[in-house]
Every structure is written in C-alpha cells, then in structure tokens.
C-alpha cells in the first residue's frame, strides 16, 4: 500500500466547526506530523479554526492539569471525566507523558489509568510524548488544544509538573489547576518562595485522609494569601473514595474561573506565546536572535491581527528574519 498523504486540513477544520468529535484522531495525526507535506495542511486546519475564520474565540474550556508525580492526577482525571460526562459535556484529554527520550521512544501509560466507556464518542483521550525538553509541551499539543476547543466542551492538557511545563501550560490553558497531595511540603515551599506559579485552582487530593487533608488545604490557602493571591480556589477532593468527594465543587471552581476570565485576551496571549515557542522549537535561539530577541519578537507578534492563528504568526516571525530560512 502506498503512503497516503497527510489529511486535508481545511476539511478537518470544517468538520470541527460542525462539531464532529470523530474528527479528533485525524486532527491529532495531522498536527503531530512534522513532515514538510503536512505543514500547509496544519496551517489550513488552524487557519480554519482561527478567531478570524470563526468570528469568535472557540467556546471550549481549555484546562491545564499539572502537579508532581504521584499526586494522583490520572486518578483524579478519570473521575473528573466521568463527572463532566455526567453533566453532558464532551471531553478531550491530551495526556503529555514525561518519559525520557533517551531512546527516542516513550511508554505512554496514562491512558491505562483513565477509565472510560469505549462506546462513548464524546470522550477523546490522546497520549503524547513530551517535547524534547524535560516536561515541555510539544508544538502539536498546543495546536491540538486550540483546534479541539472548537468542537469539545472541555479540553484538558495533563502534564507532570516538572521543569518548564507549568509556565508553558499557563501559556496555553484558559484555566490551570495544580494537583498536590497532602503532606507534600514541597508544594507549600515552592508557593511561598515564588518558584511555583500561582495556579487558578489548587486541588488537594486524598481528602479521605481527613484531618491531614484539611490541614494541607488550610496551609496552602495561607501560603497563597501570603504570596499575594486572593482569587485562587482551593478544593479538596478524593477520587478513590466511594463515591468520590469534591468533584462537583471542583468543576464549579473551574467554571467559576472561566466565567471571570477575559477569554479573548487570554487566548490571544496564548496564541502569541505558542507561536513564539513553536518558532524557537523550529529555529532555535539563533532564529530568535535573527528577529531581534524575545522582546522584539513579542512586539512584532503584538502588531499582528488578533484573530491570527499560530502558523500565520510563526510565518510573520519567519518573514522578519529572512536569513534563517536559508535554502531549506
């Protein structure tokens, strides 16, 4: 059998605009494709779902879920997906696996920990290996989040909270939830010292531990106040309790954050940050210098049309640094 070309990006965009959830696997196959032939199709896809094409921001809620290894992210997510489906909301999960890439390969194990009905067309789960940097988001994950938010009610990006991922996830998500487990003093210290970015929602897992979880919740709330945050909701949950505890409260806290958000501003910032990150992945620090450094790049992006999609913004950066395109 001969190799089929990459799928038609414009057609996929049209399907997403029509709310066709079954387009999701092909969308991911396309945005993950790093081949030259895929580039114009990815541009067509993202162009077709851009605010310019839609006349508005995509309605879906992009939620970043992150936290240290072992905090219970996958277990929580499994229960949370059920809760959202119970509210009749469609859910896409982009699980970013932190596996080392020494061999180039990775074991994508998160899927095993998320239980869902295989006959349910409104739940989509895709595991992706992390980018080349520790914990970094791959360009495909950013592009997929933007695209799927057209068709899905909720798009979750799940990452392990190490290295760069927290900063990156806050660049992409409308709402960032950080998961910590009681007794993990690190989170507390990181918050106090400012190493950890202040999340929009802080989730304390293992609420079934009772007093310990309550105390953790109190300590974290105090740390957040001393770090200057008055808005962060702190929610205690237990996904392993039967029935699970705190799920409705958590979805309400996520919704409440989204309701107060200036969505067009956050999405615009997200697209521009994603474009810059993609540009750096493609052309490296040398490319960045060619456009005059990070600050100039930011200025250039700020001058573009607010409705532009990521590939258009990347192209604008590339145009400003003609030397880097070389003969490739």
């Amino acid at each position: 059998m001969a190799a089929a070309g990459p799928p038609d990006g414009a057609a996929l965009a049209a399907r997403l605009r029509d709310g066709d959830l079954a387009a999701a696997p092909a969308v991911l196959n396309l945005v993950e494709n790093r081949g030259a032939a895929a580039r114009p199709q990815i541009a067509a896809l993202l162009g077709g779902v851009s605010p310019t094409a839609l006349g508005a921001e995509a309605a879906g809620h992009v939620i970043g879920v992150t936290g240290p290894p072992g905090a219970g992210k996958s277990t929580l997510l499994s229960t949370l997906v059920r809760e959202w489906r119970g509210q009749d909301r469609s859910v896409a999960v982009l699980a970013v696996d932190p596996s080392s890439r020494r061999s180039g390969g990775s074991l994508l194990g998160d899927r095993a920990r998320i239980t869902f009905d295989p006959h349910d067309a409104a739940t989509f789960i895709r595991s992706t290996a992390a980018g080349t940097r520790l914990g970094g988001l791959a360009p495909a994950t950013r592009a997929a989040a933007h695209a799927l938010a057209i068709a899905f009610d909720v798009v979750v990006i799940e990452t392990v909270g190490v290295g760069q991922s927290e900063t990156e996830i806050s660049e992409v998500a409308d709402t960032v939830a950080v998961i910590v487990q009681p007794g993990s003093g690190d989170s507390l210290q990181f918050l106090k010292s400012g190493i950890m970015e202040i999340p929009d929602v802080l989730v304390v897992t293992k609420a079934d531990l009772g007093q310990i979880a309550l105390r953790a919740r109190r300590d974290l709330a105090a740390a957040l106040r001393s770090a200057g945050s008055r808005d962060t909701a702190v929610v205690a949950v237990s996904a392993v309790a039967s029935p699970p505890v705190g799920m409705a409260e958590l979805t309400q806290a996520l919704d409440a954050h989204r309701a107060t958000l200036d969505l067009p501003a956050r999405r615009l910032a997200s697209r521009r940050a994603s474009a810059l990150a993609d540009f750096v992945v493609e052309h490296g620090e040398r490319g960045l210098r060619a456009v005059g450094g990070r600050r100039d790049a930011g200025r250039l992006l700020a001058a573009q049309d607010p409705g532009d999609d990521i590939p258009t913004l990347v192209a604008a950066l590339e145009a400003a640094a003609p030397g880097i395109m070389g003969t490739a």
Binding site: G104, G105, L107, A112
Partner: peptide, 21 residues
Amino acid sequence: AVRARDAGMDVVYEGIRLTPA
C-alpha cells in the same frame, strides 16, 4: 512494550483485560 520503547517507538500500553471495543 519495554523493548519497543527502547527501540525508539512511542508505546501505548494499557495493561490487561481489555475488550475489543
């Protein structure tokens, strides 16, 4: 699964007891 990863593949492994669906 482990060998495929070591060989450089992305491996989706979900454990046991899966239905065809």
